[in-house]
């Protein structure tokens, strides 16, 4: 008896055209804390390869005609070599930039997962009931994954070549966006220069670095450089062979050093011996 449910997930068996092997998709109602009862989305796990909005749409048309889909959010981790997503923008800047990738929370979804959001509650209900019915009857339906093959690969290769005009536009747009965000940040920063803190200091902002992170980073660096310089200065002044105790100490240190090395070597050789290294044949 094949189970139809696992840990609250319904199991939806599908197969691919021209293949007899069954594939299992797991789904449940998608609920977040805020929209407990108003949710109109289904969460899917173990979607087959190359699942796009179009494929899901086609499948729904096949099994639940009339359930109109609004949005399909796929996990961006599906084809990523790592298991978690790092947002490099977040990590390198504190500017309020919209991560283009992260619309709908695709980066938080685990690999091979996806969320289908329906146009309204009724459409959701329709689809969910239909899928549940298929699941409980263990009815195998066909997943509309087309033959991919060489055509698909070639189109992928072609897609890598970017259209220069389009590219120029996107880039121009992103530069504008970035400049705006930066301008906002600078404004904020300028506000801070007006503030006088408890000790009576204000923040000084140079003309070059325009963000807070940039400035703070620089400050840190500057501080450590100063300390190093001071240390160097001190060291230069000291004489280390003036007092007798210094000479003695130096000799002693040398001896200890030698001895330590000797002991280390002994230890090393002992280890080598354990590994039976001294067998020349």
């Amino acid at each position: 008896m094949v189970s139809t449910e696992i840990k609250g997930f319904h199991i939806l068996p599908v197969k691919f055209s021209g293949s007899s092997a069954d594939h299992y998709i797991f789904f449940r109602k998608h609920e977040t804390r805020e929209q407990k009862n108003t949710s109109r989305a289904i969460f899917f796990f173990n979607l087959p390869i190359c699942t796009t909005g179009a494929v899901v749409k086609k499948y729904l048309q096949q099994v639940a005609l009339g359930a109109t889909m609004e949005l399909f959010t796929a996990s961006i981790l599906t084809e990523c070599p790592e298991d978690v997503w790092l947002d490099m923008t977040r990590l390198t800047s504190d500017l309020e930039l919209n991560g283009l990738k992260d619309e709908g929370g695709g980066s938080k979804l685990p690999r091979n997962c996806g969320i289908v959001t329906f146009i309204d509650k009724a459409a959701f209900q329709l689809a969910f009931t239909a899928l549940k019915a298929l699941s409980s009857l263990a009815n195998v339906t066909e997943w509309p994954l087309n033959d991919l093959g060489s055509k698909f690969f070639r189109s992928c290769l072609k897609k890598q070549i970017l259209d220069p005009v389009e590219l120029a536009q996107t880039i121009a747009q992103s530069v504008v966006d970035f400049d705006r965000a930066e301008a906002e940040s600078i404004e904020q920063l300028q506000n801070q220069t007006q503030l006088v803190d408890e000790d009576g200091f204000t923040m000084v902002v140079g003309t070059h670095r325009k963000t807070k992170a940039g400035i703070l980073g620089k400050q840190k660096l500057a501080a450590s450089v100063e300390v190093e310089k001071a240390k160097d200065k001190l060291k230069k002044k000291e004489k280390d062979d003036f007092y007798r105790f210094q000479l003695r100490q130096k000799k002693k240190d040398e001896m200890n050093d030698l001895l330590m090395k000797f002991r280390q070597d002994q230890e090393k050789v002992r280890l080598m011996k354990e590994k039976k290294r001294f067998r020349p044949y």
Binding site: S19, A21, D22, H23, N46, D147, L148, S150
Partner: peptide, 28 residues
């Protein structure tokens, strides 16, 4: 890609046959 195990409550195992059919679909 996993499949539920017969007679087990919440255990699953890798679905080799499905992987093979997806591979052959992908390769076309």
């Amino acid at each position: 890609d996993i499949k539920p195990l017969d007679g087990s409550k919440d255990e699953v195992v890798v679905n080799k046959s499905s992987i093979f059919s997806q591979i052959s679909l992908l390769g076309g």
